[in-house]
Write a protein that binds this DNA or RNA. Structure first.
Lengths: 151, 151
DNA sequence: TCCCTATACTTCGCTCGGGCAACTATTCAC
DNA sequence: GTGAATAGTTGCCCGAGCGAAGTATAGGGA
């Protein structure tokens, strides 16, 4: 595979530009189809809160890559569904600490498992080496698109 | 890079599940920020019509991966903006042939160039071999998520 | 102390994306 | 020619997303 092939930035951009939306569409419909459906941004917000409980709204918004108002409303929905808790912080009462409820943790796990299972099914047709190539590529790409994630 | 590393379907799924939304977010904001902004689905519809003029609504919807009503409304917007033409077909008057207008072609080209340029900038930091690895990975992944594209 | 700015979020108004259900128009099959 | 299938559109609803404006709290001078 890597017999010193080369690719220009443009080729690379073209490949990513064509493929990424394809994958996203699949992820979106997959997550929608589950009972207890989640949108992709909702899933990402839950996943972030799973990793970093007591995050501020700003942190979540920055990580997911949306504006503050958008994230505020997204969290509204999750709070209404009982998946997320808003807890005002004592030392700085402007801030709100967001955390998953136990229902939220369960839902996240369920959607994560189901989605991963379905994707795994697709990747099962590839060889282990091909899958490794994909994992490696993702590891190359990720940092290019990650938000600084200060803190 | 490919010294016979291996990866399970689950690892692969996990990598794709984490990375893809990250890229999409970037693509979306990029396309939104241009004058003559496009959403990603709008862009994909235009790109498809650029490759296959006189397509039916169903074909576009299937390719982009949305329902018929969604695509109908998306096309509405593009028609209103003068980027796409609806031409009823003579032999089967239920069908509508969709094509780009010259404005549509220009807009598509502009957005495509701008987006590719921006992505290229990101990928410029990688080595040519790394970029080739990404291109290869995309070629592996694409067919797994592509819609049959009958016809 | 009082005021003034900055920060953290929320609310408002709006547009687009997306799906389901129901409808119209046309074609096809018998 | 009537009934079923096909191609699209419309209505209704919800969620995503932004900018602008509003609220509440914190911090920094004079």
């Amino acid at each position: 595979m890597a017999t010193e092939r080369r690719a220009t930035p443009e080729e690379c951009a073209r490949a990513v530009l064509e493929t990424t939306p394809l994958i996203m569409q699949s992820l979106r419909t997959q997550m929608r189809s589950l009972r207890g459906a989640l949108s992709v941004p909702q899933f990402r917000a839950l996943a972030f809160l799973g990793r970093r409980p007591r995050s501020s709204l700003s942190d979540v918004a920055q990580h997911v890559g949306t504006s503050l108002p958008s994230m505020s409303k997204l969290i509204d929905g999750l709070v209404t569904r009982g998946m997320v808790e808003r807890v005002p912080e004592a030392d700085d009462r402007r801030r709100v600490a967001l955390s998953l409820t136990s229902d939220g943790r369960r839902l996240l796990q369920m959607v994560y498992d189901a989605t991963r299972a379905r994707l795994s099914g697709l990747f099962a047709d590839l060889s282990a080496a091909e899958r490794a190539a994909i994992v490696d590529a993702m590891k190359l790409v990720s940092p290019l698109f990650s938000v600084p994630t200060s803190t």
